[in-house]
């Protein structure tokens, strides 16, 4: 209870901050996504075998080749910005859903 909580002084994060999400259990750090990226948002992870780091999340075009060209299905997925998630209606039930 008396242990000091360490808090760092940091600027706000870029929003949206995670244009893609990696599954570290699947990704082997091959950097294929980094190689094909149109906007150069990634840098290689200093730790070999780990997913690339997202240095410029604000520059992402959300175009998808990083996902389309990934050799390990499920290692990377696009993370749709929350404010741009669309809705749809199920025709028979009238139920409403969202991304």
């Amino acid at each position: 209870m008396d242990e000091e909580t360490i808090v760092y002084a940091l600027p706000n994060r870029t929003t949206p901050g995670n244009p893609v999400l990696f599954d570290e259990a699947i990704c082997d750090g091959c950097n294929r996504c980094l190689t094909v990226c149109l906007e150069d948002v990634f840098i290689p992870n200093p730790q070999k075998g780990k997913p690339p780091l997202i240095l410029h999340p604000d520059e992402c075009w959300y175009c998808g080749p990083c996902v389309d060209d990934c050799p390990l299905p499920g290692a990377i997925r696009l993370n749709h910005p929350l404010q741009q998630r669309v809705r749809w209606k199920r025709k028979d039930s009238g139920g409403h859903f969202r991304v």
Partner: peptide, 23 residues
Amino acid sequence: KTRIPVMKTYMASGFDPERDMLQ
């Protein structure tokens, strides 16, 4: 640029073109 951000993302969320109407 619709293959992954629209088709794959929406279907992973449950969108079904045979049953649904996109807003």
